[in-house]
């Protein structure tokens, strides 16, 4: 089963004005359930529009959006329930924090769901521990935290709603390398521990290669390619034709091969490259 699906969906911004712009054009996309899917594409390729349509913040100009095989716009009055089922973390989510304490801010979503006090408490604690927030931080003001921690609080705020599908728009943008790895691996951890689906938008091929099971490449308001990281990154020429690049390690391996070393070129993470080069050294092909 697919976790979410777009069928024949188009979206036009500022319709009937001089600023009219087609963001996505008659697209069909299916997001498989219980995996981490990555969406890559250039600025303006329609990634963010897709993510906002999935949780009902934008209503498609044409076509249907299905979440768990149900048209989310069949009952427009109940669209809030869709937003609880499909959690969306925007780009730079730390700018949405507003409560006095970290605890209260994480509790905002569950509170809006109308859950009981004990249920809210349980969810806040779960979400906090998932992103690495300890209990002694609960009473701090979120505005006193550093950027990276603010981001964690904001992500926890969405995780606390325990959405079946969690969508994140550039969750690691602007973080240092360690912060990136930490946040991304915690998102994968969320997926595993709650048995949910994660959709992640990113510009970083390296991150995608490590953390995603499937990758959707978007270009020019349309899906361009879909497959496992190995499948997608093996088509480097096609990626380059739409202005995207394969991970740097893949480039390195291709270059090594071109210089006469017998290495695999379907390598897209540093760990794989390390193993491959170690094999090469062991076999004595390099002196």
């Amino acid at each position: 089963m697919n976790a979410a699906e777009l069928r024949g969906v188009s979206y036009v911004y500022s319709k009937n004005t001089p600023f009219c712009k087609v963001a996505v054009n008659n697209i069909d996309i299916a997001f498989e359930e219980k995996i981490v899917t990555g969406i890559i594409g250039h600025t303006g390729s329609g990634k963010s529009t897709v993510s906002q349509m999935l949780n009902g913040l934008l209503k498609p100009s044409e076509g249907v959006v299905l979440v768990e095989d149900k048209d989310i716009w069949s009952e427009p009055k109940k669209i809030r329930n869709v937003r609880f089922a499909v959690g969306l973390v925007f780009q730079y989510p730390e700018y949405q924090l507003f409560e006095e304490t970290v605890y209260k801010d994480i509790a905002y979503g569950p509170k809006n769901m109308g859950l009981s006090e004990s249920e809210i408490d349980e969810r806040v604690r779960m979400a906090a521990s998932l992103v690495g927030i300890t209990e002694d931080m609960f009473d701090k003001s979120p505005f006193d935290l550093s950027g990276g921690w603010k981001r964690r609080v904001a992500i926890a705020g969405v995780m606390a709603m325990r959405p079946k599908i969690l969508i994140l728009d550039e969750p690691a943008a602007g973080l240092d390398p360690r912060g990136r790895d930490e946040i991304l691996s915690r998102i994968v951890e969320y997926r595993r521990s709650t048995d949910s689906t994660v959709i992640m938008i990113s510009h970083s091929m390296e991150d995608m290669a490590v953390y995603c099971e499937k990758i959707l490449v978007m270009s020019d308001s349309k899906p361009f390619m879909y497959g496992t990281p190995a499948e997608v990154f093996s088509k480097s020429a096609e990626l380059e034709s739409v202005g995207l690049a394969v991970p740097q390690v893949t480039k390195l391996m291709t270059e090594l091969k071109a210089r006469g070393y017998h290495v695999r070129t379907d390598i897209y993470t540093v760990a794989q490259a390390k193993a491959e080069i170690a094999r090469l050294v062991k076999e004595g092909a390099v002196c």
Binding site: F90, Q96, N112
Partner: peptide, 11 residues
């Protein structure tokens, strides 16, 4: 943007 973000949290 902020309205959308809070709506996404069920505001």
């Amino acid at each position: 943007k902020i309205i959308n973000a809070q709506k996404a949290r069920g505001a």
